[in-house]
Amino acid sequence: MKGRESTFNCHMIAEGRAGGEALVSQDEILFYLVDPQSGIVIEKGHSLEGKSIAGKILVFPAGKGSSSVQVDGLYQLLRRGNAPRGMIIERPDTILVTSAIIMEIPLVDRVDPAFYELVKDGDRLELDAGQGRLTWRN
């Protein structure tokens, strides 16, 4: 059913507002294994392999990998305009939290579980991290 809209509470980690298409990852993400030129995930066997995270609101369980490669991976994407516009995460870690803050990419966690039942790739999301609000439309 199209044209539905819901608003969810969430918890701000990195401030800012962002809107865009949802892209949902089943797997943890290492930004080092995303092609900085295109934003396409190149990690073999990853649930997002072959898909682009550029300009998306990225919904994923957690980050992974050592801090140098994770931070540099995200930075290379950002520099080329291919970073996600916003990030929604379930299990934050120090490295990803730090990266999102210094690169000024809105990041939230603790979203109502009902959100995860609804959200699909391509849904429209409006994220207002500072207000702790996430709006979903399909």
């Binding site: 801090s67 140098s68 490669v69 931070v71 540099d72 995200l74 930075y75 290379q76 210094i102």
Partner: peptide, 15 residues
């Protein structure tokens, strides 16, 4: 600090 001299590392230190 596990500095790596990757670009992001240099960028933040210089910032």
């Amino acid at each position: 600090v596990a500095s790596s001299n990757q670009e992001a590392d240099v960028w933040f230190a210089e910032k």
